[in-house]
Design a protein around this nucleic acid. Sequence first.
RNA 1: GGGCGACUAGCUCAACUGGCUAGAGCACCUCGUUUACACCGAGGGGGUUAGGGGUUCGAGUCCCUUGUCGCCCACCA
Length: 797
Amino acid sequence: MGESTQKSIGEALPKAFDSQKQEVNIYAEWEKRKFFSPETVADLLKKQGREVKHSFTITLPPPNANDDLHLGHMAGYAYHDAFGRFYRMSGHPTLLLPGKDHAGIQTEAVFVRVLARQGIDKWEIGRDEFNKRCYEYSTNAAKIAQAQEKRIGLSADWDREFFTLDPRLTEVIYKTFEDMYADGLIYRGKYIINQCPHCRTALADIDTEHKEMRGIFAYILYPFADEADNDRAEEVLGHRGVMVATTRPETMLGDTAIAVHPEDERYRDFIGKKVIIPIAKREIPIITSEEIDMSTGTGALKVTPAHSPIDFEIRNKHNEENPDSPIDILNVIDETGKMTGDIPERFKGMGTIECSKALVQELDKAGLLEKIENIKHDVSVCERCDTPIEPIVSNQWFVDVKPLAKRALEELDKGSVKVIPKGQQNALKHFYENIIPWCISRQLWWGHRIPVWYSGGRDLHDWLNDHPGSTVEDYEKETGNKVQGTGKVLVSDEKPETDPDWQGKPEDLLLEPESDVFDTWFSSGQWPFSTLGGPDGEDFKKYFPTQYMIHARDILFWWSARMIMFSLYRTGQVPFNTVLLTGLIFGTDGKKMSKSRENGIPPKEILSKYGADALRLWYYTDALPGANAPLQEDKIKGNRHFVNKIWNASRFVLMNIYPDEVPAIADELDNLQSVWQGTSADSDADDRMAQQKRFHQNMMTHYKENRLHLVANGVREHFWGVFADKWIEDVKNEIQGKSIGDPQRVKVLSELLFLLMQNLKVMHPLVPFVTESVWREFAGAGIIADDRWLIVEDLEA
RNA sequence: GGGCGACUAGCUCAACUGGCUAGAGCACCUCGUUUACACCGAGGGGGUUAGGGGUUCGAGUCCCUUGUCGCCCACCA
């Protein structure tokens, strides 16, 4: 050992990696140097004389700008970031494009609650004021979310960050609507939709969930209008009328038929006959439908087309086949879930359950209630607020997604998009094959207003839709309303000057704007190209199609499925080649995290205790594609130990290097670089360089094959088990007793340092903070040039 | 009802196209103040890979079957 009094380079380093401080500092340095910009990377590559490869792009999933990010979000970004960093270091100008989602219905629901806590009702302040305040609220939430994304180390290009309501995105989205409308893919129509009485809006099927709930199954007798039929029924069926069984007695007020199976012997004599709805006292016919299951209930189904999807279908099919005896649709429940329409006065305004109870009582008194069974059945509920869905018939905007899904299927079959894990690819295929028209209008305030103006008003348009073959004159005659337009739809963001088809006086023309907004997914479904300036944008040419789409598996159908369809429609290309589904982080009890269960740990707590690197490393190993990862603090702790190991092994190397030796070591590193390049991983040589090379190439394969968990495992095994436990221990012996500057000592230490640097490179995409922190010490000591940053080092060299 | 997946050490999970004695972390046991790290080192115990059958020179891995669990989709009134 040298008797020199000089201090070694590593002497001043702290004994443990201070993740709280270091991670934040290092991030700021990267940001300052704009390493997250693909243009900066391209310039650097040129300057270094390296090949500028094809761009690597991920448009990051925009989190909902209405709440803090949870652990799942943050860990998910660790995945994006690892790939981004790997490809950046491999010579690809890399763009991780960040954003925040306005999240229509969810944010509106959240913000309504925020207002309610202040004693404010949204209807009081009105649409404009609501949107103004909601915008502020979202902007603030977005800021907090961005800070969290930075904290996990996400190397995204913040200069390109988008909010989904950004006018630049809106322009792209409106153009899509316009094109689709012109192509006949978008239409307005009267259909049965899912109404959330609480959110007071229509929902797409996919926005609902099924929940098992307790319910009743009531057997109700509908007497025949004709006493002769009642006599016959008593003989055949055992009661004077037709017995129906229903879970929702209140909908009987909206019944317009009874349906039986055409081959059902029991009812053969009664097909075409009329029964009287008890209490409502309306006559309805008995019709047939193949859809009826003879073994359910009594085999006779009361048909309420306005409030049951299957009834709606039965009615449509019946009307198609029997145009001379059509069945009506009778709306008896309004959009807030209250009884309405052509029903006895005493039921009006009642809630559905209240009405059901009242009806059951009256039926019982009238002797028309046979029995009530208690059952459990699946009920659709609003995904956002858990309120049971009320199916109602109303006019909404739809996208005919069938042709789009067909294109998407072709691409799936061709293999231009693959989903990892594979099983989910089949699920996506299944989704496309069974896709139904997508209801895209929402009766909300928060979102993109649908860019449509109704000439003569929306009522006129919808009336004409409901009455095919009728004219505006018929409308005037039937409703007594004055006609103030052609009933046509004008697609435009701004109010159109005029309706070119309008024959009347210009001042009589009424152009009414659509008040509905788009389903959130209509805009986020265009994310990969809208954020790149649309199909004609500058960035689009450089960065589209993107490479990866990474998100949790629970939004595959909502999001990736839509992005693929929209991209094919607007750009003719698939938006990405790989959809990688990350695992969901579950609570400490192995169940889905939720605030009420208190089974989560706030991200802040994890980060301050163990640091971002440790959290990242845990996520790679435990949250495999498609799997669930129960949160285990001990495992994160274990990974924190590994992060600290990296720090201390590096510290050991630096503690053995003295300033006087630096020039010699720097020279030696250059030599080793050429040795490294000439080292074959195939050779049987078991020296350290060859072993490191083998390891390096294995890890490169894993990265490219998206097996981050194998990289994480491999790195731990190699760095801890081989580099730290063996090589460092060996080197201790090899340099023992040699004085500072001894050529043999310099040689051995240089090799150890070089191997360390190679390890840091391989590990950096996973644990960027600790690796870059060490790298900075090399630069600070003059071992490498000061402008060398690990984040842009050449991973392949 | 349809689709997808899981079942491996006490716990949470690995094992890439079937191939050395099935591996990690945490937990557990024994020992240890050595030129980094006790957020450490050396060593150790612990598995009939859910059960059964099959293909193969060889199966955690492929096929069949039984069971248990989970997720997604679906209009059983």
